[in-house]
Amino acid sequence: MSLITIIGRGHSGTRAISHTLYASGVYMGACLNRSGDLVPPQDMYEACRVLARHVRWQGDLSWDFSQLHTMEIPEEFRRLIESYLSSVLAEHARHPDAPKGWKIPETTLVYPWIRRLFPDIKYIFWIRDPRDCILNRHLTDDLRDFGIQYPETDDLRLRRAISWKYQYDLVKATPRPENWIEVRFEDFVLRQEETLQRLEEYLGIPLARIPVRPDAVGRWRQDEGVHDFDFFRPALEEYGYEHA
């Protein structure tokens, strides 16, 4: 059984799939927080900063990720990831055929090198309407905390939207791994059985059914702040989200 990891920006609803995997008997690490993240996270955060040194900001909302796909991965990065995943990797060594994996949103920030270090694992790209993703605070809102440059702004919603776009662009710029599935959070909530059947076929294991809340979908419709940005449009169209 391959390892499993979840790619998706914070507030994409990734806790739903992490809780599903855990409830299905997938080992998700020695210590999890309420969001289903593998903790402690500090080594992962530092790994994000190591990778960010090799991303070139081109001004405005454009970044050059090309170096990440060809350069030698620094040994410092390898050590940090192995330290962060120590409980998962140890369990994998003891029971290689048992399902196991991890989830933390910051995996998205290091996805190009995770893909190169773990080319054969199962990737789940978890997608949510970006207008819902930016309604609440997340640790990755200010990309400078992780060493990533972007246009300065005091607008918190714009800052979150830029963080969303950066992570979307980073995923899109990375060559697709062999094992990859894309799942919309909205489908998981509103079409749970159909979506879980897709995931079961992909993962090769039965999955538990966890409670879901339909009111988690489309919260931006009741939001009175700014939640839509022109640069969301390509993703909204790609993933079938209706325009306002």
Rank of each mutant, 00 (worst) to 15 (best):
I114E: 13
D120W: 05
L51Y: 10
I127L: 13
F125I: 07
M28D: 07
P96A: 02
K122M: 10
R128P: 04
Q42R: 15
I121Y: 10
T70P: 03
H69A: 04
Q58A: 06
E82D: 10
H54K: 11
I127Q: 03
G36H: 08
D64G: 02
G29I: 04
L51F: 12
W113C: 08
D129M: 08
L135E: 00
R94N: 11
T70D: 02
P99K: 14
S87F: 01
I124M: 07
P112N: 04
I81D: 00
G101L: 01
E91L: 00
L68Y: 00
I127V: 12
P99H: 13
L32R: 09
M71T: 00
R116Y: 13
I121E: 13
K100F: 11
N136E: 13
K100D: 10
H69Q: 13
A47Y: 07
C31H: 10
S62W: 15
Q42C: 03
V26I: 06
Q42L: 11
D37C: 12
R53Y: 12
I73Q: 05
I81S: 03
T107Q: 15
R116G: 00
P96E: 02
L85K: 06
G29F: 03
S87C: 05
E82G: 02
R78P: 08
G101W: 00
W113F: 12
G59S: 00
L51T: 07
F65K: 02
P74L: 04
R53G: 12
F77E: 04
K122A: 12
C133W: 01
A93L: 11
W113H: 12
E106Q: 13
G36K: 07
H69G: 01
H95A: 08
S62D: 15
Q42P: 09
E91H: 00
D43H: 11
L117W: 12
F118G: 12
V110C: 13
Q42T: 12
V88H: 03
W63G: 03
